[in-house]
Amino acid sequence: MPAASGTQYRLHRAGPQGEVRATVTELAAGLRELTVGGRTLVQSFGEDVVAPMGCGMVLVPWPNRVRDARWTLDGEPQQLDVTEAATGNASHGLLRNTGYRAGDHTDHAVTLLASVFPQHGYPFRLDTSVAYTLDDDGLRVTHTIVNRSSRPAPVAVGAHPYLALGDVPTSDLTVTVAADTWFETDEQRIPVASRPVDGTPYDLRSGARVGDLSIDVGLGSVQQVDGAIRHRLTAPDGDTVELWADDDFRFVQVYTPKNFPSADGPTQAVAIEPMTAPADALNSGTGLRWLDPDERWSLSWGIRLTRV
């Protein structure tokens, strides 16, 4: 039977910490597997299932939610398709159910391509690509978007990896995120205010044990650490998996479900979702980028393993 997520692009290369391997899916250009020296760096899922809880997906041309699937363009109301029935919102962009086509493909890299066509609530044409390239210690992901419309198009980018660190239970890992603000949300999970993280469960700047958290929160004012945006999961022995990102990714969603479906049953997981804009950016304009006709935007993030 064909895989539920389509063609599986299996990448490999030698590295100083052992072989680096990844599996990328045709559906949603998703990251399904990543290991360094046999050590797992992301939550995986089987070929025979649809990615659970958005696992590994690319989120374009917006991440997170749009209130009531509505926004306004040049004074004209726009009605997107509702893709989150429980809230009535449009969620995670327009490519999450799209099969990408293959571009360049080598043993250690693959570029996947997909177009956003004019449609309900989004009257723009975008050409997009996602390039996955293995490094010595992990993976680099580069998104490129070109506006093929005759007028400026609003765009934001996100990704939805769930990080892991080998056999260490996720609940025992410490998550560290250098973000100074959090977004208070309403019953539709749409931001209504941005507030300082000080004194809240969302202050992850000094680290917090994942098992002690029960959060699904958007964070903003993400700060650079040692010249780059860096989010980290650290094991008790000091080994670390790091999600790094370009300066474009000034927002992040942190989600700590305790019921992530694994082969062994529900388990604790942690999603660290780099985003260029928070939820409802099409309405608020926060973090939204307007690409001129034929303008190209490229930006990168990645995952790496550091051992003590």
Results as ranks from 00 to 15, higher is better:
residue 2 P to Y: 08
residue 9 Y to S: 11
residue 20 V to G: 10
residue 23 T to K: 00
residue 23 T to S: 10
residue 26 E to H: 07
residue 34 L to H: 05
residue 34 L to D: 07
residue 39 R to V: 13
residue 40 T to L: 12
residue 42 V to H: 03
residue 42 V to L: 07
residue 47 E to W: 11
residue 48 D to Y: 09
residue 51 A to P: 12
residue 52 P to Y: 07
residue 57 M to Q: 15
residue 58 V to T: 15
residue 59 L to Y: 10
residue 66 V to N: 01
residue 71 W to V: 02
residue 73 L to F: 12
residue 73 L to C: 12
residue 76 E to S: 12
residue 81 D to Y: 02
residue 89 N to G: 07
residue 92 H to I: 06
residue 96 R to N: 08
residue 97 N to Y: 05
residue 102 A to G: 06
residue 112 L to E: 01
residue 116 V to W: 06
residue 126 L to I: 09
residue 128 T to E: 11
residue 128 T to A: 13
residue 128 T to R: 01
residue 129 S to C: 05
residue 133 T to V: 14
residue 134 L to I: 12
residue 134 L to F: 10
residue 142 T to F: 00
residue 144 T to G: 04
residue 145 I to S: 04
residue 146 V to L: 09
residue 147 N to A: 03
residue 150 S to H: 15
residue 151 R to K: 15
residue 155 V to F: 00
residue 157 V to S: 11
residue 164 A to S: 14
residue 169 P to A: 07
residue 169 P to K: 09
residue 169 P to R: 04
residue 175 V to F: 00
residue 175 V to K: 01
residue 177 V to M: 08
residue 177 V to D: 03
residue 178 A to G: 05
residue 180 D to S: 12
residue 181 T to Y: 01
residue 183 F to S: 12
residue 190 I to N: 02
residue 192 V to A: 10
residue 193 A to K: 10
residue 200 T to A: 06
residue 204 L to R: 07
residue 205 R to P: 01
residue 214 S to C: 12
residue 217 V to D: 02
residue 225 V to F: 06
residue 226 D to W: 10
residue 237 D to V: 02
residue 239 D to S: 13
residue 245 A to N: 11
residue 248 D to K: 01
residue 255 Y to P: 04
residue 257 P to F: 04
residue 268 Q to G: 10
residue 271 A to V: 14
residue 272 I to F: 08
residue 279 A to H: 01
residue 284 S to F: 01
residue 285 G to S: 06
residue 287 G to W: 04
residue 288 L to Q: 06
residue 293 P to Q: 07
residue 297 W to L: 15
residue 304 R to S: 15
